[in-house]
Nucleic acid binder design. Structure first.
Length: 589
RNA sequence: GGACCAUUAGCUCAGCUGGAUAGAGCGCUGCCCUCCGAAGGCAGAGGCCAGAGGUUCGAAUCCUCUAUGGUCCGCCA
């Protein structure tokens, strides 16, 4: 496709793949290959071992069987034609039928120019094609400050949202406020106790209330608002008002927690708004019309044997029709909704808002809800809207190598604030993304602040800062080094193997974005940045022994070429950190 | 009893949705600075990818079973 128009390539891997496909088409036309072959499985990727070349394709191997030909024959015919392209300097058949391509240095050198021209938009992809995707994350109960578990979910969800945005999706970041259940009654009662306390009364916090200090100020605020109006009054008199007052206060707290982490939501969606508005009923009516709602009795769970188990007839959702293990109750035996019912309505609403794709980010303890939610969305959307649920595993906190879980503010758990106050939002975010979401994460307060290669945050930031330092030095030396000038530099001077290595790494960025977005795995960006930073540090260190590799040289033209490489690396690092929500550092202190 | 997730170097973890001789950091071993680019650098050792089957040109990756660890399991949130 003419996406390239002779300019430097956007994604060199896709570029070469296109070349391969058109070449194969020509071979089909010429009768060298049978018609009707499926080219989809053909890939172009960097070989594991750089000695094999710059790029490898499996084309011959995946076509061999359907074409009823030997892979090596296809590979050799293809190699001959590919070698005619100016971008390809050699095409060798290897192993069982791999085709190893070596690309002209100019192809790699052009990458730097592209990066300098496009800036941090380099790698911005078309994968999403403007599809609307809803990413729901955090969604913590409005009963207290966010803790470490929420922090990981918040960072993950936010980075995922940014990643998808970068990959070309139209992203909505959403928070579901669980303000409809019994837990907000507990909150209201706890705040009422603090309110009494604010009036000088001695209070005890019985089992089933929230004793955290963070409610003291809420009790005082309530006193400031209503004075002594609720003293010596029954619950029926104040509960509703205190509940609304308290959840508002808690959401203020949560929003400010999120802000401290640099997370901003587009939509806060209230569970309560689903009640009494006919929306739960409407969602269930939709399921009912599909024959998925019935009255029935569930089997007791085996092996668990609750003592007070007795069979009861309930309204059930036939989630087994959509992949769940058992059907799920939507209505309690007393006629009230289960927690699942508003969840269904909420996702029904998301489907109706026209999203092409839904993503929920839950803590690992919600693993049991994955199948039923997927079943619900599948049923509600008629299978047209995919729901991906990402679970974030536990975070284990360490200090001085010792595990701990105390908190000054909340009394019971370590809060998001505890973490951000100690290490800052940038470090918090990056470290939370140095593990894939479904693996446990160790978070050591001392190690994350260490300045060494062991610490990826520092290592990546340092690479960016080093480039900033080069630019400062260049300015002192009177070398013009703005991006436009650098983009026009003679990049053919970047012919050393170490320099080409960095350029190849930069060329992988668009491809990495695509893969990470397709799998909903933002951590891949963090690992990529660590590798890219490593390449830059490696080049820098080589400058110790090989003076020609230093970025600032005697003549301006050479310097500008070298600086162009450094600067484009910094741009990609900045773009990557942007996705992770981390600010790139201009200097290390 | 069941579901989901994990299991890769001594340790902590990647592995680009099936590719070639499985990678990184730490640790270990051995080299390398009389500040001008060592808050380090280079090289090396270290692996039955938990185990057993299967799928195919080809498996750490997909399927089945087993083992170990974690999370969860009517109406709670």
């Amino acid at each position: 496709m003419g996406r390239n128009e002779g300019n430097a390539p956007m994604n060199i891997f896709a570029e070469i793949r296109e070349l391969i496909l058109t070449t194969l088409d020509q071979m089909v036309t010429a009768g060298d290959l049978p018609e009707g072959l499926n080219f989809d499985p053909i890939t172009t990727e960097p070989p594991r071992d750089a000695a094999h070349g710059d790029m490898a394709t499996n084309a011959a191997m995946v076509l061999a069987k359907p074409a009823k030909m030997k892979p090596r024959d296809i590979a050799e015919a293809l190699a001959g034609k590919l070698a005619e392209d100016a971008r390809i300097t050699s095409a060798d058949v290897a192993g069982p039928g791999f085709l190893n391509l070596r690309l002209a240095p100019g192809v790699w050198q052009a990458i730097a120019k592209t990066v300098l021209t496009e800036g941090t938009d380099f790698g911005r992809g078309s994968l999403g094609q403007g599809q609307k995707v809803n990413v729901e994350y955090v969604s913590a109960n409005p009963t207290g400050p966010l803790h470490v578990g929420h922090t990981r979910g918040a960072v993950f969800g936010d980075a995922l949202a940014s990643l998808l945005d970068f990959a070309g999706f139209d992203v909505t970041r959403e928070y579901y406020i669980n303000d409809g259940g019994a837990q907000v009654d507990v909150l209201a009662r706890s705040v009422y106790l603090r309110y009494l306390e604010a009036h000088g009364q001695e209070v005890a916090f019985p089992e089933g209330t929230y004793p955290g200090d963070y409610l003291i100020e809420v009790g005082e605020a309530l006193k400031a608002k209503v004075g002594d109006a609720y003293l010596d009054k029954g619950e029926q008199f104040w509960l509703e008002d205190v509940r609304a007052f308290s959840t508002d206060k808690m959401m203020e707290l949560i929003r400010s927690d999120l802000k401290a982490l640099g997370v901003e939501m587009d939509v806060f969606y209230s569970e309560k708004s689903l009640y009494g508005t006919g929306r739960i009923e409407a969602a269930l009516e939709d399921l009912k019309s599909k024959g998925l709602i019935y009255e029935g009795v569930l089997e007791p769970p085996k092996g668990k044997k609750p003592e007070d188990w007795e069979p009861r007839e309930q309204t059930l959702f036939k989630s087994t029709e959509h992949g769940d293990d058992v059907d799920r109750p939507v209505m309690k035996s007393d006629g009230g909704w289960t927690y699942f019912a508003p969840d269904i309505a909420y996702h029904y609403d998301k489907v109706q808002r026209g999203f092409d794709m839904l993503i929920d980010v839950f803590g690992a303890d919600h693993g049991g809800y994955v199948k039923r939610m997927k079943a619900a969305v599948s049923a509600l959307s008629g299978g047209t809207v995919p729901l991906d649920i990402k679970l974030t595993q536990l975070v284990k906190l360490f200090k001085n190598g010792e595990p701990f879980k105390m908190s000054k503010r909340a009394g019971t758990f370590v809060t998001l604030r505890d973490v951000v106050d100690q290490v800052g939002p940038d470090v918090t975010r990056f470290v939370m993304l140095t593990r894939k979401n479904d693996a446990m994460l160790d978070f050591d307060f001392d190690k994350v602040l260490e300045q060494s290669r062991e610490n990826p945050v520092f290592y990546v930031q340092y690479a960016h800062a080093r480039v900033a330092s080069v630019l400062r030095k260049a300015a002192e030396a009177g070398i013009t080094a703005d991006d436009a000038t650098l983009a026009a530099a003679d990049l053919s001077l970047l012919d050393h193997e170490s320099e080409l290595g960095v350029l190849r790494k930069l060329a992988e960025w668009p491809r990495l974005v695509e893969t990470a977005a397709r799998t909903n795995e933002p951590h891949r960006a963090a690992f990529y940045l660590y590798e890219l930073a490593g390449d830059l540090h490696g080049l820098w260190n080589k400058g110790n022994e090989v003076p020609e590799l230093r970025f600032i040289q005697d003549d301006a033209a050479t310097s500008q070429a070298k600086i162009a490489l450094a600067r484009s690396t910094a741009i990609v690092i900045a773009a990557g950190l942007g996705i992770l929500g981390v600010n790139p550092a201009e200097e290390m202190r």
